[in-house]
Simulated assay, not measured.
Amino acid sequence: MTSSTHLPADLTDRWHQAAERLGASAPADTPLHSGMGGRTLSGPVVTTDGLSAWLRLMVAPKPEGKIWEGAALADALLGDAISRPVILAEHTWHEDGAAFQANLWTRLRGEILSPTPDLSAPAPVDEQWWRDIRACVDEVRTSADPSGRGVMTQAYIDRIPRFIPALEGADLTVSRWEAAHGDLHWANLTRDPLEIIDWEGWGAAPAGYDAAVLLAYALPAPDTAAKVREMFGDMLNTEHGRLAQLVICAEIIQASERDDVHARLKPHAERLADEILALQ
């Protein structure tokens, strides 16, 4: 993919332009949230009929690829039993050699559980929330993911001994792939009620991967990590689930060189990997 340095640096004007084209508006000083390496810009809007909504603008070199297609495919192919925001409208266009995609979403009804993907304290959720997240994960994993769409590849998994050297020479072949959200951490979850956001990267993943991600990012909060293990033990305590945990541990260790979140998660991921390897 073309480097993001070739893409527009400031999306603010285009965000407001997209709002107008989608029949929505926002004050000029509306706080906007940048994400994905500066390639997305999001913020609240109000539609012409007075509905409070959320507008997300993404820029890419071309109108193609997993991230570009993911949200619309999730909206079209995943069942209503999976609690998540719904796309109200979409607008795409080309300008200055780049492609722009604007999605207008229903506003979140609940409160985001964590400002970062990891937890620094126990998740403030009740038993119903745990039953709901389990039901959503089950609904996703039994869904048919679009052909050729994956959260990761077998080739990547074959390389994870670079980050967990004890796996050198091990057979890391994934024998069961299932549909997964792919980024089921605590900044992508709400409470009162539960909603799951950011479906751009969903697709096929090793069985148990969503449960493994949820566990890995809960490790700094032992009580919540224990609850994840309780609710998803039938997924995690299997050959497939243990491989999924090793995969997310390797991803965290790899990412620890790039950002503070994964740097502080790295020792937790290393301990989890050691625990899993001790069982083999």
Rank of each mutant, 00 (worst) to 15 (best):
Q17M: 15
H240Q: 12
E64L: 13
H185V: 05
D75Y: 00
L279H: 07
V86Y: 00
K66P: 08
E64Q: 11
D75K: 01
K66T: 12
S147C: 14
A180K: 05
R264E: 05
D260R: 03
G79Y: 04
L41I: 13
A9L: 14
S175R: 13
D145R: 12
G70L: 13
I253C: 04
A250L: 02
L277T: 10
R229N: 09
D132W: 02
A205Q: 00
G148K: 03
L215W: 00
W199Y: 09
K227M: 15
A244C: 11
G182K: 02
D126S: 04
L41K: 04
W199R: 03
A216M: 13
R264W: 03
I253Y: 09
A24F: 09
A263D: 11
A99R: 01
Q101N: 05
L32A: 08
A273C: 10
E239R: 12
I164S: 04
Q17Y: 15
Q17H: 14
L214P: 06
A98L: 12
P8K: 04
V125T: 07
D260H: 10
L11M: 12
G203V: 02
M36W: 13
A102T: 02
A179L: 10
A255K: 11
G241V: 08
S42P: 07
P31T: 01
P61R: 01
I276E: 06
F163K: 08
D49Q: 11
T153N: 03
R258C: 12
P220T: 07
A255W: 09
V86K: 08
H94L: 11
A278T: 12
H91E: 11
P267S: 07
P27W: 01
A216S: 10
D29L: 15
I87Q: 03
I112L: 12
A74M: 07
S34K: 15
V45L: 10
E178N: 00
A71R: 09
P124H: 01
D145P: 15
S256L: 08
V45N: 06
I87G: 00
A207R: 02
A187E: 01
A76D: 13
W15Y: 04
A135S: 15
P161E: 03
L77N: 12
V174S: 04
R258Q: 15
K227Y: 08
D171C: 01
E251L: 12
V45G: 06
G203E: 02
A81E: 11
L172Q: 11
D126P: 02
G203D: 02
V59C: 13
G203Y: 01
S52C: 09
A250I: 01
L73G: 03
D210A: 05
D138L: 08
A74K: 01
S34N: 14
L236C: 11
D75C: 06
K227R: 14
H185F: 08
T47W: 00
V59M: 14
R264I: 15
W68A: 01
A71Q: 13
